[in-house]
Structure formats: structure tokens, C-alpha cells
């Protein structure tokens, strides 16, 4: 079970590799991936440097190319694909069926991973992508219960990667247009969710308020800690009640169930957060490396150490964690 860590920059990549990541995933700075944020990602030179740094230390580099290119962006996407093959990434992470179809022709040797953005939640969808395009790995959307993950692993011969830590999409990835409904930009269309340029903070007599393209997302009492106004984590009114009607700000943390994931044959654990800095990447990688190693050494006696959980909570959205869909109560 390998550890796959995020890198939005060369220092983050170095932090991941130095702290024990088996693989690092990056994106190009051309708007072709789901973390299309200002100041983030790699140009060709940095990507080559990153691959060299990782390889010299026994780690692999995956390239996320997981937007859904529209006609105007098609050339940019295929250019990114050729560049990925040219600089020798160990795999490309794709979501768009058209791009998957295209990729297999000029680069039959290129290892394809199916992005979480492809919304493949079941064995038949995975079989479609394997039979048509020869995908070697699938990243599962964060909507499956543990027993459902197990059924998928048992029923497919492609490697299964699951999210183990990080901010949590409550929606099926790749099928969420909440952000484009409110801001005009979504993960599928622009590689962003609740984009920073649409955010506005206000101090009012009713408290601090966050807005996204003018829409009130949340209102905070004095002294209450305010989070980034991601659309699905706002406080809204439903049936006269004001609450986190969609989801609370909270992070996924699968540490408590590492032995089960290992036993069922999950191939890789993924850490979310290419938008986060090197310090986050270093801390999370270090804890997950220690936990995976401890789990492999003694799966039956494994328990998530309190200091690991505390370290992860400190860097978590909402400073708290959940097993998300992996445990039944959440569903």
C-alpha cells in the first residue's frame, strides 16, 4: 500500500519525498488540472527538476491532467499530455473520456490513472475505462462506504487508490456544478471550486460575513473562527433552521481504518492538498508514512496514535476529522 502525496510546488514535492512519500502528484501551470490556483503548479523545467529529485530518492511522480477540456481548451490539454509523456512522468491522472481515448493512440506506453474526477464509483464503470483505455489504477470518489470499497477492490483487477486524508468533497467528484452555478467556474470547467477571486469578506454589525460572487455563504459571531467559503460548507437556512445544511468544515482522516484498507488490498492511499504549503505536506506525509509502516509491521495490533491524530487535526480544515463516507453513520 503506497503513499501518494500532493505537491503544488517544488518545495512541497521535496517535502513529500523527504518525508517518505512513495509517489507525488503534481499538475502543470496551464489550467489543465483540478487545482488551477494562482501561484501553484509546475512549468516544464520545474516538473523535470521534480521528477529528477523524486527518482533519485526512489519516489515516482504522477501528473494530474484531470479537467474536462472543452473545444477551446482541447489543444492545451493534448499539449500537456504530450509534455507529460515527454518529460517521463510515471503516470498521468485523467478524468475526461475523450482525453483518455486520445491518450492511448500517441502514447500507448503511458501509464493511465483514472482521476477521482471521473466519478467511477463501481466495478462496471471501472471496467469500462479498463477495457477501452487500459487504465492501471482508479482513484475512488469519496462517497463509498468501507464495505463498498472492499467490493470494488475485489471485483476489479486495476489498482485502487483511496483518499486517506485531506479536505473533503461531500459531492461525487466530477459531477458537481455547485461552483459554476454560483461563480461560473467549477472543477470540471476551470479546475477550481469556489474560486478565490469570487470571495469577499465583510465586517458588518451582524458579524463577519463571507460571500462568493455576492452570495452570502456564512456569517460568524465575534470570536468564531472563520473558514474558507467553500460553497458546500456554508451555513444556510432550511425549514427555518440555519445550519451547515450540506456539510461542516471538516477533514477526512482514514488513519483508524488503515488495517482494513491494507487487508482488502487497496493499492495506494492519497493525501489531498496540492493547494497547501510544504509544511502541511511534510507533516501529513511524515504521519502517514509512520502510520502505514506501523500498520504493515503489525496490522492486528495497529491503532492510530493520539499524537498522529492531533498533528493531523492541527492542519485540518475545521481542525477536526471524520471517516467520511467510509463509515456508515456518515451516509
Amino acid at each position: 500500500m503506497e503513499l501518494v502525496c500532493p505537491a503544488g510546488s517544488f518545495p512541497a514535492l521535496r517535502a513529500a519525498v523527504d518525508h517518505g512519500a512513495d509517489a507525488v502528484y503534481i499538475g502543470f501551470r496551464d489550467g489543465t488540472n483540478a487545482r488551477n490556483f494562482p501561484g501553484l503548479n509546475f512549468d516544464e523545467m520545474e516538473a523535470r527538476r521534480g521528477i529528477r529529485y523524486a527518482r533519485d530518492r526512489g519516489a515516482r511522480v504522477f501528473l494530474a491532467l484531470n479537467i474536462y477540456p472543452q473545444p477551446a481548451g482541447w489543444k492545451r490539454a493534448t499539449r500537456a499530455l504530450h509534455l507529460a509523456a515527454d518529460i517521463g512522468v510515471d503516470a498521468v491522472i485523467l478524468a475526461d473520456p475523450g482525453l483518455l481515448r486520445y491518450a492511448a493512440r500517441p502514447h500507448p506506453e503511458l501509464r493511465l490513472h483514472l482521476s477521482v474526477q471521473a466519478s467511477a464509483t463501481n466495478r462496471q464503470a471501472i471496467a469500462f475505462y479498463r477495457e477501452r483505455f487500459g487504465i492501471r489504477r482508479v482513484v475512488l470518489p469519496r462517497v463509498l462506504a468501507l464495505n463498498q470499497v472492499q467490493q470494488v477492490v475485489a471485483a476489479t483487477d486495476v489498482e485502487v487508490e483511496v483518499f486517506a486524508f485531506g479536505s473533503l468533497c461531500v459531492m461525487v467528484e466530477g459531477r458537481c456544478a455547485l461552483s459554476s452555478y454560483v461563480t461560473g467556474e467549477s472543477p470540471n470547467t476551470c479546475g477550481v471550486c469556489s474560486p478565490a477571486h469570487a470571495v469577499r469578506w465583510e465586517e458588518t454589525s451582524q458579524g463577519r460575513q463571507s460571500r462568493l460572487n455576492g452570495v452570502l455563504i456564512d456569517r460568524y459571531r465575534p470570536g468564531e473562527s472563520a473558514g474558507y467559503p467553500t460553497l458546500c460548507k456554508g451555513r444556510y437556512q432550511v425549514d427555518e433552521q440555519i445550519f451547515h445544511a450540506i456539510e461542516e468544515p471538516i477533514s477526512l482522516n482514514a488513519l483508524p481504518i488503515l488495517p482494513q484498507l491494507l487487508r482488502m488490498g487497496v493499492a495506494a492511499l492519497k493525501v489531498e492538498g496540492r493547494q497547501r504549503g510544504p509544511a502541511y505536506v511534510a507533516q501529513v506525509t511524515r504521519v502517514l508514512r509512520a502510520a502505514i509502516d506501523a500498520c504493515k509491521t503489525n496490522p492486528t495490533g495497529f491503532s492510530a496514535r493520539a499524537d498522529w491524530i492531533a498533528t493531523l487535526d492541527r492542519v485540518s480544515e475545521g481542525q477536526t476529522h471524520t471517516l467520511g463516507a467510509l463509515h456508515r453513520p456518515w451516509q
Binding site: 459531492m171 459531477r175 458537481c176 458546500c232 433552521q241 445544511a245 450540506i246 463516507a325 456518515w330 451516509q331
Partner: peptide, 17 residues
Amino acid sequence: LAFSARCFTARAHNVAK
């Protein structure tokens, strides 16, 4: 606009899915 494993109607009624 979006789908989830969670049920937001159940959530609004404070019951599990």
C-alpha cells in the same frame, strides 16, 4: 447540480440516511 453519498433531506431532519 450535484450528487452525494449523503442525504441532505435526512440531514435537514437530523436523521441518518
